[in-house]
Every structure is written in structure tokens, then in C-alpha cells.
Design a protein around this nucleic acid. Structure first.
Length: 504
RNA sequence: GCCGCGUUGGUCAAGGGGUUAAGACGCCUCCCUUUCACGGAGGAAUCACGGGUUCGAAUCCCGUACGUGGUACCA
């Protein structure tokens, strides 16, 4: 049977690191086994609908190169892929469970539930559950008589369907990452399966949809582990046990102080979402890796090895290499703290690894938004190749290479002035004349002329190189000066030197 | 509180009874480079704690501590 996995986000906001990594592991596992990766939208909570969130998720996946084989926009044989559009499919299963005694109707109002929690609340038990200890005291089809229940139902009384968790049972399963995990059913509450509005909760929906969509392996975040016994029981009660997927609960990605939250981004200065997300209600912007100047190759790479390794020392992987090497059994069971410094290192490595041609479009984009026009693609490629070793994030190219296309607006003259002298000024005045007569404009000629003149004036060339650099570049950075002079051309070199001289 | 999961340098981590306990990021020193990087050579830094089991424990078992998640008609 072909491998089928799914990622099931709820479209309520930005897609953060952990979410992308969950998609990634799903995707890698599916592709490694030649299977399908399904994207299902879990939008059963109508109160949390956020416009734009679904499109946003697709954009992020596209940027990351993690395209689903089946989804609301890609289609597929098991649709619809939006749970809100599958609403009618769930009720029958909930009813079946009630009919067979595995679930029951509950008519408790919000107020009644609150009251129950309030009354049972003690210091020892700050969050009382709706479970076997209280269910017979509540207003549900277990506690009420049959005529009472029928009457309530006939009167269209708002009600939910809850699972009836066994009082004394142990549910266990083998997690692909953690091994055997056990739960005592009596400690788990009677989760709502079908809400009063007819929508299923996550618990019913995952089981029904995973079954209907023929999912073979279910990977999700560790936060789902505590409700796993509910899902296991549902598979069993619905009679689908033999087609239950294999589970893997992925470790959490932590921030500098505990669970990674979008607040950490603002607080510690690093992005936590894949792409920029602006909350339509609060207008609050949470920064994304894309906008920060990360390459998708690097983003995927760093996420892949945050919690997984193939047992070798390899750390840099292309998507194809990840697909070839990924093994869910080698995923760590412990949560991993996200390290932005290392994330930047991955990006730097990928910038070094990609060719100028592969970086060109993105670099040009940053140039354009910085007001730098690029007229010559061959020149751009040459420049990218020359400076990419000193760029960590894509916007760094503006600083590191912008001066090849546009004269620096400000010169860091403070780096020159302390050691400036009339002799040095005279040197540059004469050097400009020499440059004007250089016929063969290339590094060797420019550099030799420089050194010869310096020797003639008995000034160490090294002391003149920094001023020269500031004149051409504006600051103390960039590739070899004469290399820069060659690329920006004779006319421009002379122009920049003369301009700088006018300021000194 | 209860339940689940976890715990190897600051961070990511390999190793799963006998190792000088890999490697990477970051940090420090030096070399290269008369800029900044890249690159190269070194360095500091680790098995949470306590009991077992064993000739021998980072590795297996139990307990404790700590972290983290769950305990919603949210996912």
C-alpha cells in the first residue's frame, strides 16, 4: 500500500517554524517512500476563522518548495480537503458511536459546565474534567432517562456528542519516535466529538478524515500526545483499527525561554514565521524568514536538522538529499531550542553554495528596493560571485555589492583622516593622472601603477590602500580594491577618487 | 494538582554496557589577508542528581529534580 501522509493546519494565523518542520517531515517521509503528501485544512472552529490565513499557508509552502499532492487548491480523489466542506460526513459516525454505547449526547450549557468546574475545583485539582467521576451528575444521555433524552432531542435542544472514556482501561501504542506509550483511560476526559453547531472537533475529524483519506502515517506535534488515547479508541470503536495509521509525535521547537512563540521573535530579534504575517484584526506584524533574507534552501535545511540527523556528520542538505536520507525513526524525541545564530550560518553556507545565476533574481530584488539599478547582468553575476562569501543574509548584498552599481552616498572619512597627509593627498592627485593614461584597464595594470607610484613617493602601499578603498566603496569592507576598480571602470574610479579628494 | 513526554558543552547533536565522549554553531587564540569576509591551525566548554544492576554505566532499572506539553463545544 502506498504511503500517504497529511499536514492539517488550522487557518488561524501565521505558520511558524514548528509547523513548517512538521510539513517538512511529512513531505520528506512521503517522498522518500514514493507516497503522497496531502494538505487538509482543519477549519472546524468557525469562531477562529481568519481571512487570508489559508492563502498564506499555501504561499509559505510554495516558497519552501513543499507542494502538496492533494489539497483544496491542488484537488485530489479524496476531497473535499477543507473540513468545513465535509461537515455532513461526520455526524453519522458520531451517531454510530452513540448507538453503540461508545459516546453519548450531552445537553449541558456553557454555564452548567462552568458551574461543574467551579464546584469541583480544589487546590489539589485546579482543572476538573468532564469524566467518569462527574458524567452521571450532568445533563446527558447517560444520566437522563430515555424519555427525557428523546424529548430534549425532539425539541431540538442544543447538544454535543462526547466520547465515553472507559473508567479502567489502558490504551497503548507504539510511536515511531518514542516507542511504546501508555495511557490510563480513566484519567482522560470525555472529549466532545461533535459540537453543538454540528461541526466535529479535531478529535472526531482527524480520525474520520485520516480513515477516509487513507492516511498511512500520522505525524503531528508532541502537544497532541495527551489526546492520542481518544483517537486510538475512536479508531477502535469505529471498527477501523486495522487501517489505523502509524503515529509519530514530533518534538517541540523551543524558544530561548520555553515554548517558541511569535512573541519571542520580537523579543529576541529573529523571525519565527516562514513569511511575514499581519494579523488582520490587530494589524500586528510577525516577521518571516523570507523577508529577513533567508533562502528557502537554507530554511528547509536548518529545519530538517533541528531534531533529525542521519548519523553522519553531514549538515548541509539539498531537498533531494533530504528526501533520500530522511528517516523518521532517527528523529529526536526531545524538544530542541531554536538557535538563530546557527540558522544564519546555514543561510551563509547556502549563499556560498549557490551560483550567481541562482542568486541573481533575489539579489536584484533587494537592489531594486534599495534604489540601485542593475543594467548589466553579466556584471551582476561577476559581482555576486565576488562578494557572496561575505553575505549572511540576502540583504547583505546591498551593502556588500551596491557600490559596484552606485557610488557610495557617504564616505567613512573618519577612517582616513587621522593618518591623512599632504603627501598622501598628492599621491592620489598624481595617481588620477596615471590612471587616465592606463590603456589596459585591468587589475594588474591598476595595481602596478599604484605600487610604482607609491614606491616613487616612498609611501607604503598598504597605507594608501585603505584610503583608496574608502574612496571607491565608502567603508572598510568589500573585495580587493583593485578588483573593484576594474569592475566599476576607469571613468567611475577616477570620478570617485576625485570626489573623495574634494572632501579631504 | 493530575497525566504524558523529555533531560549528552551556552545551542544543535553523535554515541545506546568497556570511546582520550565525535562533529557543527557560537566564543577565544594564532595563521592567511595592509579592509571586511572566506579559508586554515589550535583552545575553553558536556553525560541533571541520587540510588541500584554489573567486573565495568553517558548507555539498563527505580526514584528525585528540572523542563515542556495536555488537562476547552481551540487546533
Amino acid at each position: 500500500m502506498s504511503v500517504r501522509v497529511r499536514f492539517a493546519p488550522s487557518p488561524t494565523g501565521g505558520l511558524h517554524l514548528g509547523g513548517v518542520r512538521t510539513v517538512l517531515y511529512n513531505y520528506l517521509f512521503a517522498k522518500h517512500h514514493g507516497g503522497e503528501f496531502v494538505l487538509r485544512i482543519e477549519d472546524t472552529d468557525q469562531t477562529r476563522f481568519v481571512p487570508g490565513a489559508e492563502d498564506y499557508i499555501f504561499n509559505c509552502l510554495k516558497w519552501c518548495g513543499l507542494q502538496p499532492d492533494e489539497s483544496p487548491v491542488h484537488g485530489g480523489p479524496y476531497g473535499p480537503y477543507r473540513q468545513s466542506e465535509r461537515k455532513e460526513m461526520y455526524r453519522q459516525y458520531a451517531e454510530k458511536l452513540v448507538a453503540e454505547g461508545y459516546a453519548y449526547y450531552a445537553f449541558d450549557t456553557k454555564e452548567e459546565l462552568e458551574q461543574m468546574r467551579e464546584e469541583n475545583k480544589t487546590e489539589e485539582n485546579p482543572s476538573p474534567q468532564y469524566d467518569h467521576r462527574v458524567r452521571l451528575k450532568m445533563r446527558n444521555s447517560l444520566a437522563l432517562t430515555e424519555p427525557e433524552v428523546k424529548a430534549l432531542l425532539a425539541a431540538n435542544t442544543a447538544h454535543v456528542v462526547r466520547i465515553k472514556m472507559p473508567q479502567n482501561d489502558v490504551v497503548s501504542f507504539t510511536d515511531m519516535i518514542r516507542g511504546e506509550v501508555n495511557f490510563q483511560t480513566g484519567l482522560v476526559d470525555d472529549k466532545v466529538l461533535l459540537k453543538a453547531d454540528g461541526m466535529p472537533t479535531y478529535h472526531l475529524a482527524v480520525v474520520v478524515d485520516d480513515y477516509l483519506m487513507k492516511i498511512t502515517h500520522a505525524f503531528r506535534g508532541e502537544e497532541w500526545l495527551p489526546s492520542a488515547p481518544v483517537h486510538l479508541l475512536l479508531w477502535k470503536y469505529l471498527g477501523w483499527e486495522s487501517s489505523m495509521p502509524q503515529w509519530a509525535h514530533l518534538p517541540l521547537i523551543l524558544g530561548p525561554s520555553g515554548k517558541l512563540s511569535k512573541r519571542d521573535g520580537a523579543k529576541y530579534g529573529f523571525p519565527v514565521f516562514a513569511m511575514n504575517w499581519t494579523d488582520p484584526k490587530t494589524n500586528e506584524l510577525t516577521e518571516g524568514f523570507f523577508e529577513r533574507g533567508f533562502l528557502p534552501e537554507a530554511f528547509v535545511n536548518l529545519l530538517a536538522v533541528l531534531g533529525w540527523n542521519d548519523g553522519t556528520e553531514k549538515e548541509l542538505y539539498s531537498m533531494d538529499e533530504l528526501i533520500a536520507n530522511f528517516d523518521i525513526n532517527r528523529v529526536h524525541s526531545a524538544g530542541a531550542k531554536f538557535d538563530y545564530e546557527k540558522a544564519k550560518w546555514f543561510n551563509q553556507e547556502w549563499i556560498k553554495q549557490l551560483s550567481a545565476e541562482q542568486l541573481r533574481v533575489q539579489v536584484e530584488g533587494y537592489f531594486l528596493s534599495a534604489g540601485i539599478a542593475v543594467d548589466d547582468i553579466a556584471k551582476l553575476d561577476k559581482v555576486i560571485e565576488l562578494v557572496k562569501d561575505r553575505c549572511t543574509l540576502l540583504p547583505d548584498f546591498v551593502q556588500q555589492a551596491g557600490f559596484f552599481f552606485k557610488a557610495p552616498e557617504t564616505l567613512e572619512l573618519d577612517a582616513v583622516k587621522p593618518k591623512w597627509s599632504d603627501d598622501k593627498k598628492q599621491f592620489f592627485v598624481e595617481y588620477v593622472d596615471v590612471l587616465k593614461s592606463v590603456g589596459n584597464w585591468e587589475v594588474a595594470a591598476i595595481e602596478n601603477a599604484f605600487k610604482e607610484l607609491a614606491a616613487a613617493k616612498a609611501i607604503k602601499p598598504g597605507e594608501l590602500q585603505l584610503p583608496m578603498r574608502i574612496m571607491l566603496v565608502g567603508g572598510k569592507f568589500g573585495p580587493a580594491v583593485f578588483q573593484i576598480a576594474e569592475i566599476i571602470g576607469k571613468e567611475e574610479t577616477i570620478k570617485r577618487v576625485e570626489y573623495a579628494l574634494s572632501l579631504l
